[in-house]
Design a protein around this nucleic acid. Structure first.
Length: 323
DNA sequence: CATTCGTCCTGATAGC
DNA sequence: TGCTATCAGGACGAAT
């Protein structure tokens, strides 16, 4: 389930394979994977064929490749703009999306949705493939627009002060050097909602999904339903610091994976799931309580139409009035 | 305006 | 055995 670390692993894996290569041909095997491209699959293809990939950049879980039109005439970018890209190929992995580099002789994956044939380069696979079982992810072409907050964000800052229009509403992520805690805390306190809902709101802080939200809350000993307008500064700092820690650990491990739905760009699964403390541990002893000699079992509850895992002893549900 | 909820999807698994 | 129900969840647009 791709969250920030997994998407960053894909970005890093992808960039050396695609930067500078031209998209020679595009094949949309399943149009549902380009449904966010409003003008349809034909227009999607027309925008991409002949364009050159300049870079792979990210904000939150959105990943995109700024494109330069090579002059073949497609709508992608306008010649004469001094090499400044105007559009990008956007990718969101959703639940189960993968971006794979594959040689032309590799059989099609069962859930292959879109195939890109790239200009040949020695020792590099010919195809970039988008594979997605559950079709929550997708690809589309988006405009690149100026941004005044320093660039797209993420861990590897792009030299271009441009952001994909479709990702302009996404906040910076906690690993981003330009992430502002003050801005986050100010906005958090104004919310009338629960803490986990806020952590999952990509417009407030990006990159955190259900798994890392539960892990960060567990590490910070905070309950998911804690009202955001009661959070003390130190508590907000704590949960963000823990989110940062758990995502850095996952990044170092190459991303989290449970069922091989997610693999990185070269097809290798992450293995961080073995060190999760909260997610998926229903009925098991809370590791922290056990270490302190207290017996407490993790419980699972439905929240926001998804599972939330908490320890009832060290992450007590907030009560009215006092904290 | 802010917040919450329904929807999109497939396939593994549980239960009868 | 073969069917149906349940679960997984990111993000957007509709509803409240």
């Amino acid at each position: 389930m791709p969250e920030l670390p997994e998407v960053e692993v894909v970005r890093r894996g992808l960039v050396s394979w695609v930067r500078g290569r031209t998209i020679d041909a595009v094949e949309v095997v399943d149009p549902r994977s380009v449904r966010r491209h409003a003008l349809g699959a034909g227009d999607f293809i027309g925008n991409l064929e002949g364009a050159t990939v300049l870079d792979v950049v990210r904000r939150g879980k959105f990943l995109w490749m700024p494109l330069l039109d090579t002059g073949a005439g497609g709508p992608a970018g306008t010649p004469g703009s001094a090499g400044i890209p105007q559009v990008a190929l956007m990718a969101h992995l959703g639940m189960s999306g993968q971006l794979l580099m594959q040689g032309g002789d590799v059989p099609d994956e069962k859930h292959l949705k879109v195939r890109f044939r790239l200009s040949p380069r020695d020792g590099m696979p010919e195809q970039l493939r988008f594979v997605d079982q559950r079709i929550f992810g997708g690809l589309f072409v988006t405009d690149l627009v100026p941004t005044d907050d320093g660039g797209p964000g993420g861990l590897a800052e792009s030299p271009l002060p441009l952001i994909a229009a479709e990702a302009a509403h996404i906040a910076r992520d906690p690993l981003d050097p330009a992430f502002s805690f003050d801005l986050f805390y100010r906005r958090l306190r104004k919310r009338k909602t629960g803490l986990k809902r806020a952590l999952l709101d990509q417009g407030l802080v990006s990159g955190i999904g259900n798994i890392y939200a539960d892990e960060a809350l567990w590490r910070a000993r905070l309950h998911y339903a804690r009202p955001t307008d009661t959070l003390r500064r130190a508590e907000a700092e704590r949960v963000l610091a823990e989110a940062r820690e758990v995502m850095l650990d996952a990044l170092a491990a190459g991303g989290t994976s449970f069922d091989s739905l997610y693999v990185n760009v070269n097809g290798a699964s992450g293995y961080f799931d073995r060190s999760l403390n909260a997610y998926g541990r229903e009925g098991l002893e809370c590791k922290r309580c056990a270490a302190a000699g207290v017996s407490s079992r993790m419980k699972r509850e439905q929240f926001m139409n998804r599972s939330s895992y908490t320890c009832p002893a060290c992450q007590p549900r907030p009560r009215n009035g006092r904290w």
